[in-house]
Design a protein around this nucleic acid. Structure first.
Lengths: 241, 241
DNA sequence: TGCAACACGTGAATC
DNA sequence: TGATTCACGTGTTGC
């Protein structure tokens, strides 16, 4: 083996070990044996001192730097795994899963559960069909259909007025949104609109937020038209952002 | 290196390669170089024929068997990864996440989302406080409290009768469940019960299902007492299962 | 014995 | 560069 071929770290390790440049202790080269050492005891790992740890930062040889980088990398990867696994454990708690349920099955249950819950909330929110006293804008986070379109539900409740529907259509048109289904209920001068909307695959997620903002400003505009001019100027800002 | 020390597969690989017992092709020993080959093209992997693939199963040498096992292991692990990742992709779709959101962040959002949705459904289901016309049993999947107890909500809607509450208490007692809070609404001879319940850490998850079944059979029993004897017999079956 | 699931360290890619 | 994320192959453990 020749030094100039040691581009890979495992080879670097072996090269250094074979030339007595690092202290490998009782075990062989770290690629195979150090793993067992680390897993057997997490505390002993920190006592496992490479010689570069006692040297000053300024005079690190290239080998030292490579080793330090490798150590960093190893530890960062461990932290990443722990982060992911801690979230999986939280999900096990939320879904009432045994702590022994394997990752794949757990995630399958999570997918199923999220679908169920979303459908439940969607159905339950559809029950409030009569216009409420307070103004409301709700855009329920939707789901991607099989053909890649994003389907979601938007609900708007406000004072009824003549140019509300033209304004609403204008917003949907400008955001390239298609209305699949629309429910309108008016009562005592107020109106509730529930729309099932499809978005192109291109702008889907952004469109949801744009629509939410547009509907909010539409609602604010309805109110401001009966109030001061100062509010109307503020509303313009909301629209443009 | 000596043959009897080759308990590890990577060492086995190298030993076999160095003695010309396997065809390693242009690259070195598989532990390092084969990985790059596999990632560069998934189809070429299947064309990457070890010599044992052409031999008959009956006359496999120990080396062949070890290699076959290693190959199986490798492929199984790949399938496992794909299974997990496909579920993660589904979750990305459900949460409207960019396909580039990393696993940890995605899972954090999933945890948050499940909590939100559970709270929403719990709140919304609490709104239907008046007894409905139809009989209902709902046991909402709960959540583990900080001290390890499982807290969940159970809802029961049926004809009111004198011995309903004693029966209900009997069920809760036999399952070692503690009632933290109870709401009762009666209207027109019907009753709706909403209970917040705590379960011991020991039987928590099972208790939820037992309670669901017990409540269902309690409800069936209430109906059957006003109806034919044939139904009552059927109900017994339901209870015992 | 073999299979399934896991944690690990590593190389590569992206920023 | 260095930090971060991912897929991969491997060793190990429990059924």
């Amino acid at each position: 083996m020749q030094p100039e071929n040691c581009s890979e770290n495992s080879q670097l390790y072996r090269f250094l070990a074979e030339n007595g440049m690092i202290n490998v202790g009782a075990y062989g080269f770290p690629g195979a044996a150090m793993q067992t050492l680390c897993t057997s005891s997490s505390t002993s790992y920190h006592n496992n001192n490479y010689h570069f740890e006692s040297s000053v930062i300024t005079d690190m040889t290239p080998q030292d730097r490579a080793l330090a980088a490798l150590k960093n990398h190893k530890e960062a990867e461990k932290r990443r795994r722990e982060r992911i696994n801690s979230h999986l454990d939280k999900l096990r708690g939320l879904l009432l899963c045994n702590s022994k349920t394997d990752k794949a099955s757990l995630l399958a249950k999570v997918v199923q559960r999220v679908r169920e819950l979303k459908q439940q909330t969607s159905e339950l929110s559809g029950l409030e069909s009569f216009p409420s006293e307070t103004d409301e804008v709700t855009v329920l986070s939707g789901e991607y259909s099989s053909d890649g379109q994003l389907i979601f539900k938007a609900s708007l409740c406000c004072e009824d007025r003549l140019d509300l529907m033209p304004d609403l259509n204008e917003i949907l048109k400008s955001l390239h949104l298609k209305t699949l289904k629309a429910e309108m209920v008016t009562l005592g001068g107020r109106i509730r609109n529930v729309l099932i909307i499809a978005a192109d695959k291109d702008h889907s997620v952004e469109s949801v937020h744009f629509l939410q903002n547009a509907l909010k400003s539409l609602l604010e505009r309805s109110n401001s038209s009966e109030k001061s001019k100062r509010r109307r100027i503020l509303d313009r800002k909301l629209v443009s952002q």
